[in-house]
Design a protein around this nucleic acid. Structure first.
Lengths: 144, 144
DNA sequence: CTTTGTTGTAATGTCAAGTATTACAACAAA
DNA sequence: TTTGTTGTAATACTTGACATTACAACAAAG
């Protein structure tokens, strides 16, 4: 199973907001045309990013902007903002393992800590990459 | 989105096979009762693990066993055996970004390497944990 | 060589999540 | 008041996970 495209779309959106903020008003329609999804998908995504304090969205007059400093927003922040399922747990367990089996009874005791380590390794790496880093990469391709 | 429970079920199954191999024949029905899923789910899972060379399954007479050495089987091996979707890519992209937008056109150039790093961090951690490690943990709980 | 228990797998169904789309009220600025 | 936009509900479609039934293929024991 893969992590949903909401995450990559969110990063795409942030890049667009930053890259074109001086050229035009950043509407959900404009963002939708770059990503190639329905504008409503973008609006819902922007709401999630807004709740997380990552963007500001102007109702009525329209327009989205990034809130705060690019180097303060990590990929983990974006990930957590849009991938909110499962109470933050990357790994999914089967329900109701057999309590009368020594293994079934203890499966969480046995595995939880290991899985947490794996998730932490991934999140740690995501925490180390900021939108500033991504923009530095992006400009190399945009300006050519 | 979470990683499917096939992975945690697979580890559960391997623990059971190893823990009870001297006490009883390990049938799909027995494993299913410990995990609390339908035996057919276990049989399909065992086929995936078999294709990956992780277990041996006897047709007819019945019974599953772990193939090879416990310390040679990593969690990444198990993960790759049962989570085969998306051509091994953890992150999912939206299709057909707008080629006439400088960001849309380059979104893969911009992001692919970063995402690969994140996935590598996670896989590297999974590679460092073997079924032997898991069994050492397991016995502490099973024998008490 | 028939019985018994098991695996391998197809067929089918259910459910949840992702994603697309339409519609429209709420809103801000011209 | 007009215009363009956001916020959000409602609805539908599709896909994948997971469950379940059924049965052929098979191996070993009697």
């Amino acid at each position: 199973m893969q992590i949903s495209s909401r995450f990559t779309i969110a990063v795409h959106v942030l890049i667009c907001i930053e890259a074109f903020k001086n050229e035009r008003k950043i509407t959900s329609e404009f963002l939708a045309s770059s990503v190639n999804v329905n504008p409503v998908v973008i609006r819902r995504l922007l709401q999630q990013l807004k709740k997380a304090g990552i963007v500001e969205v102007k109702r009525g007059s329209g327009g989205a902007d990034i809130a705060g400093n690019l180097s303060d927003i990590t990929l983990l922040d974006v990930y957590n903002a849009v991938e909110s399922v499962g109470e933050g747990q990357l790994f999914h367990f089967h329900d109701n393992p057999n309590p009368r089996c020594p293994v079934g009874k203890n499966i969480h005791n046995i595995m939880d800590e290991r899985l947490r380590e794996i998730q932490e390794a991934m999140e740690s790496r995501m925490r180390s990459i900021t939108i500033k880093n991504i923009m530095d990469d992006a400009y190399q391709y945009i300006n050519s």
